[in-house]
Structure formats: structure tokens, C-alpha cells
């Protein structure tokens, strides 16, 4: 079937079987491999992306269900060559080790901060409680999100000139 959705601001259309999961559509069809997967039971949250600004587990959404919606993945976190404060926060506070859970964690953090720009520790822990990190022990993830809250976009510390432009993902082979 033909599936059309907006991914990181670009409209994409592609053929896919109705049973294809959103995580596989993003990874295998669009080549956006920043979204990871880690379980068969919707428990780990590695696959979290934003659908219309709300975190969803993309292993639990069919690509067809995302048709017509706006998806934001880790590849779309940085805007116009500037890192999202959440990305900067994860580097500053060592919020990642192997990096495998990181894209999902950062997207959930972004959604949280959009709703609540100054969350306390308990709120942060609860927001990421649907996601497993096997490396960090979470404290540094909490600190990373707090760092991002303290340095919202537009404040000077969040600017990072080192960013390379995000890859174009609009062209999708059928």
C-alpha cells in the first residue's frame, strides 16, 4: 500500500506492506537508522519517536497508522545546523554510553520539555520510565535533561557551530 507521512518536516511517500511497523519503515524504507529497536514486547522504548509531538513506540505503530501524521526522529532534532539543547545536554552530562537508547530518550525529553520547560527530577524519571537504558544508570540522563531545561534553545550556550547539515531524507525509493 501507499503510505504518505511527514518525517522531520519532509513529506515522504512510499509503498509498504500493511503489516510493516513504523520502526522498520523509518529504518529500512527511509534509511533513517537513528531510530533503534530492542524488544518484541513494547517494553524498551528504544524505538520512541514523536508522532504529532507525542512520544510513541514506533515498534507498536504500523507505518500505515502513521499515514498522514507528522513524525519526528532523532535525525530531525537538530534544526538549521543547531543542536537541540537536549542533544547538547546529553553530551555535557554524559547522558549516553553505547548510545543505543539515546535517540528515544532524547525525543521523550524533547516532548517533556515542550510541555513542561522546568520539570523536577521525579517528573523526568517518570517521563522516561517507559524506556530502558542498560548503560548509564539514568542519573546522568536526568542531569542531561535538566541541563537542557536550563539552556533552552536560543540561549547562547545551546548554540553549537560544529553541526553538519542533516541529511536529506525526502527522496525515498519506492
Amino acid at each position: 500500500m501507499k503510505i504518505t507521512m511527514t518525517v522531520n518536516g519532509d513529506s515522504v511517500t512510499s509503498e509498504a506492506e500493511p503489516r510493516v511497523l513504523l520502526v522498520h519503515f523509518l529504518r529500512d524504507v527511509l534509511g533513517l537508522t537513528g531510530t533503534h529497536w530492542g524488544c518484541d514486547t513494547s517494553n524498551c522504548g528504544l524505538c520512541a519517536v514523536l508522532m504529532d509531538g507525542v512520544p510513541v513506540k514506533s515498534c507498536t505503530v504500523l507505518a500505515a497508522m502513521a499515514s498522514g501524521h507528522e513524525i519526528r526522529t532523532v535525525e530531525g532534532l537538530a534544526t538549521g545546523g543547531t543542536l537541540d539543547p537536549v542533544q547538547q545536554g546529553f553530551m555535557e552530562e554524559h547522558g549516553l554510553q553505547c548510545g543505543f537508547c539515546t535517540p528515544g530518550m532524547m525525543l521523550t525529553a524533547r516532548a517533556l520539555l515542550d510541555k513542561n520547560p522546568d520539570p523536577d527530577e521525579d517528573t523526568i524519571r517518570e517521563a522516561i520510565s517507559g524506556q530502558i537504558c542498560r548503560c548509564t544508570g539514568y542519573a546522568t540522563i536526568v542531569r542531561s535533561i535538566k541541563w537542557a531545561a536550563a539552556h533552552p534553545a536560543g540561549s547562547s550556550q545551546a548554540e553549537t557551530p560544529a553541526e553538519t547539515p542533516a541529511e536529506e531524507t525526502a527522496e525515498v525509493p519506492a
Binding site: T33, G34, H36, V74, M91, L96, G99, F100
Partner: peptide, 21 residues
Amino acid sequence: LQRKEDPRFIRGKGHYLDDVV
């Protein structure tokens, strides 16, 4: 010292096994 590997991971540009095509 901030990690040298972080810039690629926070951009979703890590290259893990399942990313090999």
C-alpha cells in the same frame, strides 16, 4: 573530557550492526 564518540550518537549517526546495509 566530553566524549569524542558523542557527536555522532546524539545525531542518530552511530553505525550499529543493524545499520549495515
